[in-house]
Structure formats: structure tokens, C-alpha cells
Amino acid sequence: MMGVAVGFILPPLLVRASGTTDEIATDLQLMFNIYAAFFSVLFVFILLFFKAAPPTPPSAAADLGSTLDSNFLLSIKKLMTNRNFILLIISYGINVGVFLAISTLLNAVILTHYPGAHLDAGRIGLVFILSGMAGSVVCGVILDKTHRFKETTLSVYIASIVGMLIFTFTLDCGYIGVVYLSSILLGFFMTAYLAIGYEMASEVTYPEPEGTTSGILNAVVQPFGISITLVYEYVLGAADDRAANLTVVGVLCAGAAFCAAISSDLRRQNAQNKNNESLD
């Protein structure tokens, strides 16, 4: 998420909004060279220092799961016949798809109401992501304290819809500071859901490998993101940003319905509790 946040703020700083084609091309080349250098160093660090697994399992349930025989194709079959996981895939894909659509077209939406505010558009994207990182931590603490995964997941989903509505109807207020605030509220819940979705997937699919469930979620959000972005862009061009935003609000409502249909089958928590009881 920090990388996404940097991706919002860095391009407006490095690439001038106006200039000749050659000047913009030079700026883009500089930006790409910086990215290439950074990722090359990061790649070397991963090769040298990244470990295959932590020295100890993160939980008793994970320790139990690591002792089970894992067959990838069998695991995929079980996941694709897991009703809760399928519902989570759809609801997660919709939420993240809307997030990707807004992230992709945020610059165009902001500049429609605040011409010349290229740097502000990047900063709004920055606070959108940073507030979501804070939301992920807060929601993680709530999950640790309450273990109410479905209730927390659904509450965050509904709060994302409310945040999207507030963002929609404050966008044209004429005060860009208000847009900053509404973006912080929207990002706090919508971006936080990205992390919560992984935890919910681990709960309803245990003891299937978390790497597999996370990989499937990451793969599935791509077609959702492309589709919702194309729809958002079409409505934005055919009508206006309010119509486009209300369209994705409707999509989020459908996602919330799928989320509400997930039953509270917390398999990982049950395994954790059983293991603790056996130790006692």
C-alpha cells in the first residue's frame, strides 16, 4: 500500500503537467529510470535476505495446518466448492475493483472540478492510501480483540459505501480541502478491506494454504478491476463523475449483499481454540 501511495505522489512531482512532447518524454524517462533502479536493488535484497518462512508459525492454527498434507490441485478443488470462499471472492473482487477504478481515474475526476490541481490529485491519492493503511491496523486490532470476522468485514463494507456517497456529493463543493477529508474517510474503510479480505479468506478456508487463497484473491480482482474501471470510465465520459460514482455505489451495494451472505464459519479460530484447549 505504501508503494501505491508513492505511485500517486511521485509522478506529478517528476512529470510536468504542461510542456512539449520532448519535455514530457524526458520526465517520463527519468521516472522510469528511478523506478527501474529501485526495483533492481529491491530484487537483489529479496534474493539475498528474503526467507521462505518465518522461524516459528504465526499461530497455533498455522502450526497445525503446516503438518497437513497439501496437494495444490486438491486444494483448488476444495476452495472452488467452498460456498463462503466463492462469495468472498465476488465481494472482495467488487470492492477492490472499485478501489482500482477510483485510483485509476482519480486524476481525471479531481481535475474536472479543480483545473490545474495536478499535485492535489496526487496528494489526495496519497492520503486515500495512507488512511487505508491506518484503517487496516485499526481493523486488525478489532479482529484480534473480538474475533468477529464477518461482522467486522460487513461493517467495513457498508462504511465503504457510506464513504463513497460522501465523496460523491462533496466532490463539487468548491473546497478541495473537503475533498481531502472525504478521501481520507473513504480510504480508511475501502483500502482497509483489502487486508481484512485476506484474513476472512484464511478463516473460511482453513486448513487450505493461505498462499493459495491469497493468490486466488489477487488473481480474481484483476478482471473485476478492469471491468469496473471500463464501466466507470464510460459513464464518466458519457455523463459525469456523479453518475459514475453512483454507478460504483450500486456495484458496492451488490458486493455488500454477497458479503452478508457469507456464513460465520471461522475454521481457523475453531482450530486455534481446540489446540489451546488440548494444551490446557
Results as ranks from 00 to 15, higher is better:
residue 202 S to H: 12
residue 228 I to W: 04
residue 215 G to E: 07
residue 228 I to F: 04
residue 224 F to H: 05
residue 214 S to A: 15
residue 220 V to M: 09
residue 221 V to L: 11
residue 210 E to W: 03
residue 222 Q to Y: 13
residue 226 I to L: 09
residue 221 V to C: 07
residue 219 A to W: 10
residue 203 E to A: 08
residue 224 F to G: 03
residue 227 S to F: 14
residue 227 S to D: 03
residue 199 E to A: 14
residue 224 F to L: 04
residue 202 S to Y: 09
residue 205 T to G: 07
residue 208 E to Y: 07
residue 205 T to F: 05
residue 228 I to C: 00
residue 213 T to G: 02
residue 211 G to R: 00
residue 203 E to W: 11
residue 212 T to I: 15
residue 205 T to M: 03
residue 197 G to I: 04
residue 204 V to Q: 03
residue 221 V to I: 15
residue 209 P to Q: 07
residue 209 P to L: 12
residue 226 I to G: 01
residue 197 G to P: 12
residue 207 P to E: 09
residue 224 F to E: 01
residue 202 S to G: 15
residue 209 P to S: 09
residue 209 P to A: 14
residue 220 V to S: 08
residue 223 P to R: 03
residue 197 G to H: 09
residue 199 E to S: 14
residue 202 S to F: 11
residue 214 S to N: 10
residue 208 E to N: 15
residue 224 F to W: 05
residue 213 T to C: 03
residue 207 P to I: 06
residue 224 F to K: 01
residue 210 E to I: 07
residue 206 Y to M: 02
residue 201 A to P: 02
residue 217 L to K: 05
residue 220 V to A: 11
residue 222 Q to V: 15
residue 200 M to G: 11
residue 200 M to F: 11
residue 198 Y to W: 13
residue 226 I to W: 06
residue 221 V to Q: 13
residue 209 P to D: 10
residue 223 P to W: 06
